[in-house]
């Protein structure tokens, strides 16, 4: 429900990450990791991203989302497993003391930048 704010934040971070030595940079791709537990709907984020990039160096950019599965670890017996149903109880020792190892990511991993001054136009 807050994907537009997140899309705008992504655009802001991406622009701030353009190296200073590129004067006429264009961002072609943003690589993002989104955990399955993050309160983000990838389809909505794509939709908002297309709006948020207008009139920015990202206006041709693709947003690539890698979805990260939810992985939990039992704090007692240390077994680790991929959570497919929203059940956070250890299947091995029935402990309820479970920590989430991954699945909450909402991280920008990298951007791919083209310097339009040094690259031949396609």
């Amino acid at each position: 429900m807050h994907e537009m704010g997140i899309a705008m934040q992504i655009v802001e971070i991406a622009i701030a990450s353009i190296p200073g030595d590129l004067e006429n940079a264009r961002i072609d791709r943003v690589n993002l990791k989104v955990g399955k537990l993050a309160a983000v709907v990838p389809e909505s984020l794509h939709f908002c991203f297309q709006i948020a990039v207008q009139d920015t160096p990202l206006h041709h950019a693709d947003l690539h989302i890698e979805e990260i599965p939810v992985v939990a670890r039992c704090a007692d017996c240390h077994v680790q497993w991929t959570v497919r149903e929203p059940v956070f109880k250890c299947g091995q020792c029935s402990s309820g003391s479970v920590e989430i190892i991954s699945g909450r990511e909402l991280d920008i991993i990298s951007i791919e930048v083209v310097d339009e001054d040094t690259t031949d136009a396609d």
Partner: peptide, 29 residues
């Protein structure tokens, strides 16, 4: 072609010609 294809090979697509990948690894929030 910017929609969601995670898990179907997107991550292995090559970079566009002339593109330079800049690692960021930063939480959006």
């Amino acid at each position: 072609h910017s929609h969601f294809h995670a898990g179907k090979g997107v991550a292995t697509e090559g970079k566009k010609r002339g593109a330079r990948e800049i690692k960021i690894v930063r939480k959006v929030l």
